[in-house]
Design a binder for these strands. Sequence first.
DNA 1: GCCGTTTTCGGCCCGACTGTTTTCAGTCG
Length: 589
Amino acid sequence: MASTNQELARIFSEMAAALELTGANPFRAVSNNRVARELRDLTEDVGALVAEDPETAVARLTALPGIGKGSAQKIVEYVQTGGIDEHRKLMAKVPRGLFEVLEIPGIGPKAAKAMWEQLGIESVADLKARLDDPALAALPRMGKKTVENIRRAILFSEKTAARVPLGKALPLAIALRDELAALPGVRRLEYAGSLRRGCETIGDLDFVAACDDPEGVRRRFTEHPSVTQVLAHGDTKCSVRLESEGVAIQADLRLVPEAVYGAALLYFTGSKEHNVRLRERAIKRGLRLNEYGLFRGSEERPQEQGKKPLAAATEEEIYAALDLPWIPPELREDRGELDRPPPRLIEVGDVKAELHAHTTASDGRMSIAELAACARERGFHTVAVTDHSPSQVIANGLSPERLLDHLAAVRAANDEVRDVTILAGSEVDVLPDGRLDYDDELLRRLDLVVASPHAALRQSPAEATARLLKAIAHPRVHVIGHPTGRIVGRREGLAPDMAALFAAAAEHDVALEVNANWLRLDLRDVHVRGALDHGCKIAIDTDAHRPEHFDLLIYGVLTARRGGLEAASCINAWPAEKLHAWLAAKRDA
DNA sequence: GCCGTTTTCGGCCCGACTGTTTTCAGTCG
């Protein structure tokens, strides 16, 4: 069941779209979108907040950047009455189907409004039916080519998911990057955009290149075998649609002189909101920032006047000229990163333990020895065997008797190996009512207990909160595995009051997992931030079922970095002695 | 609608590209 926060975020987004479609002041639309974004990222449950005390809730909400008195009142109105009057009025004016028309690349509010008002087009279905109608091409600023582009955009959107999961986009981008970077004359080339920021889904691939032979790189890019359509090919920027390994995605390449590579990389990495903050900061200092560098003065296109930028070659020097330290891409989301010194974010190399992995005893493909070998290959000091508990029938969950046998096998394997410690653990189901799937006596015999919700993932936020709070309070639990059970783009999962979970996890000294599988990434980035603010410990685990799953670690690390995680707060990055002592303390308590 | 080391009113980031137009609006990132 969706949380109040997410419901409200959707409503504010809808109001923004409706405002655009009715020709309202465009800044009002921007503003509503900003509120939607804050709500989406907020880990406190506004429903609970308002229920407790509306006045405090308003104060708390207006303290958030981008939420003013007006929007805070609307949020209260929603919680108290179940709806927002202005939203209802806007919805009565604008057909719902128009929102999906607005989603089509190339169609903005002006075009959608004209189609709707002049031709009565109220949905993508309507639009498709009118594609050959001359009246469509006759609309202002429309024409044959524009209509053709719309037709292709609709076809493309029908066969591809709106956004591609990080785990599919990253390997594709790395392959393309390496291929382009190997061309003669290429001095710098990197992927940028949401991919470089490590976002959980990717809208399109962005590449920035500095090279001696732009034409050669441009040609290789636009004529690449995976390209299905060239959308634009200017001197400095080209855009294509490409399909590869079952992934269909747009890709942009920006070609720049090496002297301004940093400015272009910064610009193309975004986020857009982070860039806006940087430009505002530049203006306050009498400077102007664009993709060609940081310039003195406020004249437009200073690079065309032959003016020399104060900084442009590297991101570091641009941040420095704005009196800022270099900010890691994962933090560039306009979530206050300009107002606090950036942490020394965790890296893949910091992780020295895998604490959530499966063997052939349940649904994994590795023996205990193979699991240990994978850990050793990566230089880990510890790996935990955490097979499923009986409720996971599909996953061949272990009965108490089988678990006891398995424990003995793990301890025997541990005696056989050097330089890796194999821990005997379990991924125990958190049952719908919050009880665990093994009794306490059995749990006491385990080195590590990862408690995870697998079933009843549609229960209400209140039930989910109670369920997970109970698991967190259990004295034998070390880690809560994939706490919400969401699947990126497919299953919403539980929507508990995350702030309440963080407080409890901090109190009971339970670590919260970032499941590194790119289908999960659960906790998600904003949860990590919230958990750290509460003083929680974080685990990053791959939930490995096969050897190659150990390679998923990067996705968990990127997500954790987006939440601001430092190695010290990640139990997988601790030295062996510290980790083992922490685990044992919980068992012996 | 939000916001304020000039401001409680009047601003609100910046440039590339396309397809429409005869100089630029719309869209995108």
